[in-house]
Simulated scan of single mutants.
Amino acid sequence: MISIQQEDFDLAHELQQLRKSCNQMGAFVSFVGLVRDYATQGQVTAIELEYYPAMTYKSLVRIVQQAELRWPLLGLRVIHRIGYLPAHAQIVLVAVASQHRHSAFAACEFIMDYLKTEAPFWKKEYINGQNYWVEAKATDTQALAKWQN
């Protein structure tokens, strides 16, 4: 259900596994985030993600549990990669199965909004031979606010 890993993932394989594990599924929605190749300081060649294993895993479990309380989900898969990742690499997968599309779309978006703001990952961008720690974005906090009302 939840993985934090350095290795890349095979999207088709992960979706096939989710599909096989769910009965009465009417929809599944997936989101794959990629390492952007741009930032305000210039062209990004890579990022590096650090985390504290026990704390980060517990945080992801809480996020998933909150989604399961809000929507009737049949299954889900969350993969978040860590380590050094070049531009355009896959960084995150959120896949959600439900009987209906509305629940699957909403839960997928909810999980991503919480991952961006509440999961304890520290990200460093490599730009033009320099590196910068990435601060939280106001737009991510605004996206989270809609779930907290």
Rank of each mutant, 00 (worst) to 15 (best):
A97Y: 08
R81M: 04
V96N: 08
L115A: 09
F105D: 10
S98T: 01
L69P: 00
H88F: 14
G83M: 00
V94L: 11
F121I: 06
A104M: 06
Q90M: 12
K123V: 03
Q66F: 05
P86A: 13
A107R: 11
W122V: 05
H80L: 01
Q66S: 14
E68D: 13
A89S: 15
L73N: 02
A104Y: 08
W122R: 11
A97R: 01
A95L: 08
A95V: 00
H102G: 15
C108D: 04
A104W: 10
L115F: 00
E109R: 14
I111C: 05
I91V: 15
F110I: 05
I111S: 01
Y84S: 13
H102N: 14
G83E: 03
A106T: 12
W122I: 11
L76G: 10
T117L: 04
L85K: 03
I111F: 01
H80C: 07
H102K: 15
G83A: 04
L74R: 13
G75R: 00
R101T: 12
A119G: 06
M112T: 07
Q90Y: 13
A95N: 01
Y114W: 14
F121Q: 07
I111P: 05
R77W: 00
S103I: 02
I91F: 01
A95I: 05
E68S: 12
F105S: 10
Q99G: 15
L115G: 04
L69W: 03
L85W: 11
L74N: 05
L69D: 13
L69C: 11
H100R: 12
I111H: 02
L73M: 01
F110Q: 04
T117C: 12
V96A: 04
R81Y: 00
I91H: 01
L93A: 02
H88N: 14
E118G: 11
S98E: 09
R70I: 00
H88G: 06
V94M: 08
A95R: 06
E68Y: 09
A95D: 08
A107W: 07
K116A: 08
I79A: 01
R81C: 07
A107H: 06
H88K: 15
Y114C: 14
A67D: 09
A107Q: 07
E109C: 12
L93Y: 04
A119M: 10
A119D: 10
T117W: 00
S98R: 04
H100I: 09
A119Q: 11
I82F: 13
Q66H: 14
D113C: 06
L73W: 05
V94C: 06
E68M: 12
Y114H: 15
A67P: 02
I79M: 10
V94P: 05
L76N: 13
P86Y: 11
A119E: 09
F110A: 12
A87I: 08
F121S: 11
W71M: 01
Q90S: 14
F121L: 09
